[in-house]
Design a protein around this nucleic acid. Structure first.
Length: 278
DNA sequence: ACCTACCTGGCC
DNA sequence: GGCCAGGTAGGT
């Protein structure tokens, strides 16, 4: 469900809601959502910590924790396809499939829910989690200074895979998913089925520009609420209203009017304009 | 570089 | 009942 713009929106709101708060208690209703460490240790090590910083890396939310003012690892959350975070008062009924609830020192609860359970939760120093192999090593952050046209070239140039598959791979560029890859390909005028090594330099540059502008616009609109994405306060984003290809198969291209096609690429439903995208 | 499995819910 | 869904991981 959430891709980079939705995760960024939730991370920013989370900063407002829980930064500086202490975790007084932890209720782990479905231990299997915690991938590391073991459930008892997870609860013990999280209890009594304070949220010191909240950042996003790809589609992961990283809450840096402190205990007695000293660094105490990171609470790392991935929302999968259907994950939700809520900040609610205890009297409010938890949404279905709530797997983890943290009671905070301002009387609110921070809750993690995920119907399909494709998401996960981890706790520990980020470096340690990466060393253990329980956190994947992610590619370049597309909204960082390191994401230059040359950096994208390095991802695309030496592979024969489709552009769609390469951009979905979190080890290349971190944070892109099915909606935004289709939108990026349309904005760049590139077919998602195109093989990376056959891209022209101009096409690679167009993709680089499109990644930055599409993600920026989606964040400004607080993400796309297609099915069940909602922010921390249960409000919808508005970017779904301006998507140009995702969800528009069979409708007219907003640029040239021809019917948008839908195919399967890299195992994912893919919509594109066969006239505007080459 | 693919392909399937992992889950639940909603729609036809 | 079957198909589809914003995402990975693991096996071939």
């Amino acid at each position: 469900m959430p891709e980079l713009p939705e995760v960024e929106t939730v991370a920013r709101d989370l900063r407002t809601a829980v930064l500086g708060r202490m975790v007084l208690g932890v209720t782990l209703l479905r231990p299997s959502v915690v991938r590391h460490p073991a459930p008892e240790r997870f609860v013990d090590e999280l209890t009594g910590t304070r949220f010191a910083a909240i950042t996003r890396r790809g589609k992961f939310i990283d809450c840096a924790l402190q205990r007695d003012g000293a660094t105490a690892g990171d609470l790392i959350l991935h929302l999968g396809m259907t994950g939700h975070l809520d900040v609610r008062l205890p009297a409010e009924r938890p949404r279905p499939h709530t797997h983890l609830s943290m009671t905070l020192d301002d009387a609110h609860e921070l809750r993690y829910a995920d119907a399909r359970r494709f998401g996960r939760v981890l706790l520990g120093p980020r470096a340690e989690l990466e060393a253990l192999g329980v956190l994947p090593r992610l590619g370049v952050e597309p909204l960082s200074a390191e994401f230059t046209a040359a950096a994208l070239d390095a991802v695309l140039r030496h592979t024969t895979r489709t552009v769609k598959a390469a951009l979905l791979d979190q080890r290349g560029v971190a944070g892109l998913g099915n909606i935004y890859v289709d939108e990026i390909c349309f904005a760049a005028g590139v077919r998602p089925t195109r093989r990376c090594h056959r891209l022209t330099r101009a096409q690679r540059q167009a993709l680089h520009g499109a990644i930055v502008t599409v993600l920026g616009a989606a964040i400004a609109n607080r993400g796309s609420s297609i099915d069940d994405y909602r922010d921390l306060w249960d409000a919808q984003g508005t970017h779904q209203e301006v998507l140009r290809v995702y969800g528009r198969a069979g409708l007219g291209c907003l640029r040239c009017g021809s019917l948008l096609r839908r195919t399967l690429v890299a195992g994912r439903g893919t919509t594109y304009c066969s006239v505007c995208q080459r």
